[in-house]
């Protein structure tokens, strides 16, 4: 039981990191990033490839974050010239390009065969509960750090500026500020967070293949921040937790719903997840942690 809860908590914590990055980009700056999974993928492959040749994880995670941020830079340049909805399309295209490049560059990534045998984090603790708990503790520490850094950003002049860009970009320009640099910085910061999340993911699952990095992941993260409350740091935490409770908790419905076959149950489960999400957004459109006073 404990090991299952820890596994769920680890996956949740990885998604919180992704959500924090997206919240910075969309929630605070208004960048409609539909390609978040691309940065996640870059981080995961960097960490996996470096981990396999024995480079310690702190270095490979930083490298993954750096590469993801670097990949975000040209995307940021593009975003300056595009309106919101067009940026959404371009970013979605970006994540698909990343996936196809990873699929095609077989000399490096082994293509569709995927990378197997990625070592566990903190492997000296064995493979039992202690090791999982240690990984979880590490993840929580990274999450708290990222959350605090986010809060710091929100309260700084930089934070006020990006929120101003989100609310009215023209007004920001009229005040003589240039939104371009800020947008690029935010995009790179969010991407770096996703890169770190990718590193944790690769080492935790132990096997990565391009088919894991599909747009569905991006949209899970979107669901999480919408449930939690767009633009709220606490929302990224709460939203991810609720999403995971919906996704995983629904497995235990088997015990309470009689008269359906096992096959039907799988479909019912996905239906219930969808229904719960729809009801949630219907009755609480501003999200769990959202502000009642706005909108």
């Amino acid at each position: 039981m404990e090991a299952y809860l820890v596994a769920m908590a680890i996956i949740t914590a990885i998604y919180v990191l992704l959500a924090l990055g997206l919240n910075l980009q969309y929630g605070l700056t208004g960048l409609t990033n539909f390609g978040h999974v691309g940065f996640f993928c870059i981080g995961a492959y960097t960490a996996a490839l470096m981990g396999q040749i024995g480079i310690p994880w702190p270095i490979s995670f930083l490298a993954g974050a750096a590469l993801a941020a670097l990949a975000a830079w040209p995307l940021g340049l593009v975003s300056l010239k595009l309106r919101d909805d067009y940026f959404a399309i371009v970013s979605l295209g970006f994540s698909e390009i990343v996936r196809i490049v990873v699929t095609s560059e077989q000399w490096l990534t082994k293509g569709v065969q995927g990378i197997t045998g990625i070592p566990k984090l903190l492997g000296f603790l064995g493979t039992g509960l202690t090791q999982s708990l240690a990984v979880l503790a590490l993840l929580i520490a990274v999450n708290v750090l990222a959350g605090l850094a986010n809060r710091r950003i929100v309260r700084s002049p930089f934070g006020r500026m990006i929120e101003a860009i989100r609310d009215n970009e023209e007004a920001v320009k009229a005040l003589g500020k240039d939104p371009a640099g800020f947008k690029i910085q935010v995009l790179m910061l969010g991407a770096a967070l996703a890169g770190v999340a990718g590193g944790f993911y690769a080492h935790y699952i132990g096997y990565i293949v391009p088919e894991q990095f599909i747009p569905l992941i991006t949209f899970y993260v979107w669901m999480a921040i919408i449930i939690g409350g767009v633009g709220r740091i606490s929302g990224a935490f709460a939203g991810t937790l609720i999403l995971m409770i919906f996704l995983e908790g629904s497995r235990f419905l088997r015990g309470v719903i009689p008269f359906v076959s096992e096959v039907e149950m799988a479909s019912i489960r996905l239906g219930i997840i969808g229904l719960a999400l729809v009801l949630f957004t219907l009755y609480r459109p501003q999200g769990l942690m959202g502000d009642y006073t706005k909108r």
């Binding site: 039981m1 090991a3 769920m8 894991q212 096959v263």
Partner: peptide, 23 residues
């Protein structure tokens, strides 16, 4: 028999397998 859906996805498969093994 206890049945779980992998959703044909590694991540969902891992969580389903953890549940089956642990619980």
């Amino acid at each position: 028999v206890v049945a779980e859906d992998t959703q044909s996805q590694p991540q969902a498969g891992v969580l389903a397998a953890k549940k089956l093994i642990e619980i």
